[in-house]
């Protein structure tokens, strides 16, 4: 069973603060982490390998510092890691990113199972992984709970808003993991030490000769960010005294009634 996992390094969005004067994001000092859902994807890959044997490859597209995330993946139990990096890839939207990653997967493959996260917590699109499947022309099942393999088939529990679908599909398949898929393991000390010595290869544009360069980077991206802004918060909160809770409740309901809200 050959498995590849797409992992993204993301800023820990819970640590991002707003500069109250400049009204900009403070990214300095914000730790970079492995996208939480990608950890679930990796855990699922490692479990599949433990059950059915095979190997787990991780790939990440990003700057040199994303190697830290790849090392973390190795320390958890991935066998091989590649950093996909090139200036020509910069500015890629989900269309271009998924195209580049699909070319990398073609180069490193063939794979039976491709795993990714439900979404990345920085961009939050949830589009990249299913788009990779589309570029590759293979089946995909997003938001999986669990995955069982039986020969060249798999049975997957898939979360949708109404409940859980049990879905059958042939391999190869791309699946995306959620928080409910599993509980990611911690790296062992030995794993951590080994990962520091591991050799992580870079894959650049030159390594991907059959890439259509009109489809990559900023130029190859159909969407473009026009502007960004920090959401305005109305700071018009009317504070009510709470010395006597019942009195406060009365005042509150009185005000709501007056404003015809209740």
């Amino acid at each position: 069973m050959n498995i590849v996992v797409c992992v993204k390094q993301v800023p820990d969005t819970t640590e991002i603060k707003i500069d109250p004067i400049k009204n900009t994001l403070i990214r300095q000092g914000v730790p970079s982490i492995m996208n939480p859902f990608d950890k679930n994807a990796l855990e699922e890959a490692i479990q599949l390998k433990e059950q059915y044997s095979g190997s787990v490859t991780v790939i990440s597209m990003g700057p040199e510092q994303a190697k830290a995330t790849l090392r973390e993946a190795l320390s958890m139990g991935a066998d091989k890691a590649y950093l996909v990096t090139d200036r020509a890839f910069g500015g890629s939207d989900t269309y271009a990113t998924s195209y580049i990653l699909s070319k990398v997967i073609e180069k490193l493959g063939p794979f039976d199972v491709i795993l990714g996260g439900k979404q990345a917590i920085d961009g939050d699109t949830g589009q990249t992984a299913p788009s990779i499947a589309e570029h590759l022309g293979i089946a995909r099942l997003t938001h999986i709970r669990s995955m069982k393999i039986d020969g060249n088939k798999c049975v997957v529990e898939r979360e949708i808003e109404e409940g859980i679908e049990i879905v059958e599909a042939k391999l190869p398949i791309l699946c995306t993991a959620t928080k409910e898929t599993n509980k990611p393991r911690y790296a062992t000390i030995k794993g951590k030490i080994d990962s520091l010595k591991a050799d992580i290869e870079n894959i650049t544009l030159a390594d991907l000769p059959n890439m259509d360069i009109t489809k990559i980077g900023l130029k190859g991206s159909p969407t473009r960010v026009k502007s960004t802004f920090i959401p305005e918060r109305k700071s018009s909160c009317e504070m009510l005294e709470s010395v006597n809770p019942r009195e406060t409740a009365k005042v509150l309901f009185g005000k709501l009634a007056e404003a015809k809200i209740l």
Binding site: Y95, D124, Q127, E134, H143, I160, E161
Partner: peptide
């Protein structure tokens, strides 16, 4: 929705066009 995001990505790739999520 889960299915909507999935469908959207399929259409965008095949139509070679941009899709803005969520």
């Amino acid at each position: 929705t889960a299915n909507g995001r999935d469908l959207g990505s399929k259409l965008a790739i095949r139509l070679k066009t941009g899709l803005t999520a969520d």
